[in-house]
């Protein structure tokens, strides 16, 4: 009986140990880091890389912010004598471009830059509209506008689209 009890106990202990250790780990497809934590934490430190486009006017964003019942409206400059309006609306990844009566529902970044260069002049107001934009798409367009700001003195305003889906 003593021997039987001991054997039974050993079996129970072994079973528990097997349950604990025998579960295989799930393997990911590769060893690449899903998030590089060191880099992400460095980004948050003072002087950490901005991660934003070159030349994005961070200082202006902090100073120029005005809130008017629907997200941030950041206005760069104050154009007088508006002769036309360019509206760039980003929905998801899609960029639509409107200038006067001309509308293009889906243009690429490259096309956007060349369209702005040909349409923009000092009297034209440029509006960048966020209509549930994908973050990277929105950022890419802002980079283009900031580049044109430096190159041709373009000014633009950011708005949240409120026209419904």
């Amino acid at each position: 009986m003593k021997k039987k009890h001991s054997v039974l106990l050993l079996i129970i202990i072994a079973a528990f140990m097997l349950i604990g250790f025998a579960k295989k780990e799930v393997r990911l497809l590769d060893d690449n880091k899903l998030i590089i934590l060191d880099k992400a934490i460095d980004l948050a430190k003072p002087g950490g890389m901005s991660g934003n486009s070159q030349g994005e006017p961070q200082g202006n964003i902090a100073n120029g912010k005005e809130e008017s019942g629907g997200g941030n409206n950041i206005e760069y400059g104050n154009p007088d004598n508006i002769t036309g309006k360019i509206v760039i609306r980003i929905r998801g990844k899609k960029i639509s471009y409107t200038f006067g009566d001309i509308k293009n529902d889906d243009i690429s970044d490259t096309q956007l830059e060349s369209r702005i260069r040909s349409d923009y002049n000092a009297g034209v107001q440029v509006i960048l509209m966020d209509d549930f934009a994908e973050a990277h798409a929105y950022k890419a367009v802002r980079e283009i506008l900031n580049k044109l700001k430096n190159n041709v003195g373009l000014t633009y305003k950011e708005e949240q689209y409120t026209g419904g889906e």
Partner: peptide, 13 residues
């Protein structure tokens, strides 16, 4: 939006 970083886009993972 001002502090948003795409993980893949900015090579954070």
């Amino acid at each position: 939006k001002e502090v948003e970083h795409s993980i893949i886009g900015e090579e954070l993972g």
